[in-house]
Nucleic acid binder design. Structure first.
Lengths: 232, 232
DNA sequence: GTCTATATCATGATAGAC
DNA sequence: GTCTATCATGATATAGAC
């Protein structure tokens, strides 16, 4: 420890971020008080205002810490597929993989907090607080248009508006899937095998693809004789 | 007006319920103060405690007012299909219609508050507050097992555990679909034609069915040698 | 950088006049 | 049943000693 920097406890910031992240998932933003956060982090009450300025700024930093990376990973996954495709439209399963697969992999990381964060993120999509919503919109501004374009090209027969809705539906399904234990107990009284995070991906991805490529409302017949959609 | 009941303003209760419902959707439970509620309802601050006893009791009454009816409607729709089927397993689309179709029809009712309530309900599935979660679990206790059984019978080739997950995914997709304007703005910068509520049903139901009946993970092309699969 | 102590404010709830 | 006035509590945020 040098004399100039009196950083006695260099990870105070991180401890606060970790504690806040976990508590926000558990109790929501409003119900999570600064006393709760600093208590769990084992730091002083005043530390939040010193390190972040305000509770609101802390919330934003909790997101920024991981969301920036996540969206970059989503984009680079998409770009990797696009490079492979050499200008041809991507397959739907590739786009879904780039966006949701990357998310699920982050959610599978229980060691470094990725799981907790993804639960928080899913919960926050429906968070009505104005400044959080605005913040999310900014963070997604670079990512969403790219995926929209890719989906439009991949599914030229589906009206763009329909694709946007289905993208939205997929977001909802994933968020609930990750929120997991909380909401799932409504439908399953006993614990499901949430232990294996890889399993969630194997369960969710087929569901998403099935929904994304489902026949449109008007054109579905009794799809018995019809050949089932080929799964890529 | 009789002399015995001094109900000067018989709809004060309802006015409070309406205001609370709308504000809970907009700001969440914690952030919605009793002053906000009584202010919007145009009643006195003390009225909530007089009529409901506490804020917590008010929250429960907001749900009870509509959720009881909703779940009865879901059940009777299911029973109508089961009567028609005469002991044969239902079609998946019938089960989805009974549960989600009924919900969407309620969400389509913008006149009498059904829309607002369904948004609140969707938002609340991920609500972490303990007493709300317990309350929801109780309200769903009579409904969920019936739908689970119907799905198990309708999809004998799909492992029950998988069906529960897909039920869960469907709940998530629907909740987001109804939450609508809030979360959707992430993916669609402009307003979609949310005006027509019937349109949502035409969009969501195919998606749900497509996901519910999607081929299982190992089953499609990437054949794991592990499980013998039957033709789709 | 960290702590104690505190300022300031908003909350849920209640007592009591009308 | 409705209102005003108020209590006790707990919130965010800050000042100032160390």
């Amino acid at each position: 420890m040098s004399l100039t920097e009196a950083k006695q406890n260099p990870d105070t910031r991180e401890r606060i971020l970790d504690a806040a992240e976990a508590l926000f998932v558990e109790h929501g933003f409003e119900a999570t008080t600064m006393r709760l956060i600093t208590g769990r982090a084992g730091v002083n009450l005043a530390a939040i205002n010193y390190h972040f300025g305000s509770k609101e700024a802390l919330i934003q930093d909790v997101f920024r810490r991981r969301l920036t990376w996540l969206n970059e990973a989503r984009l680079s996954a998409l770009e990797r597929f696009e490079k492979e495709a050499r200008g041809a439209p991507l397959k739907p399963h590739q786009i879904v993989e780039a966006f949701f697969g990357v998310s699920l992999r982050m959610a599978a990381d229980t060691e470094h907090g990725g799981h907790t964060f993804m639960r928080l993120l899913g919960r926050t999509y429906t968070e009505p607080s104005a400044f959080v919503r605005q913040f999310l919109a900014d963070e997604y501004a670079a990512v969403v248009p790219r995926f929209k374009q890719a989906l439009f090209r991949a599914l030229p027969d589906v009206p763009p508006e329909e694709i946007l809705w289905r993208f939205h539906f997929m977001l909802g399904a994933m968020s609930y899937a990750i929120a997991g234990t909380d909401a799932l107990q409504l439908v399953a009284e006993h614990e499901l095998d949430e232990k294996d995070p890889e399993a969630l991906s194997r369960r969710l991805m087929p569901f998403l693809l099935g929904g994304l490529r489902a026949p449109l409302a008007g054109q579905a017949v009794k799809a018995k004789e019809k050949t089932p959609r080929k799964a890529a």
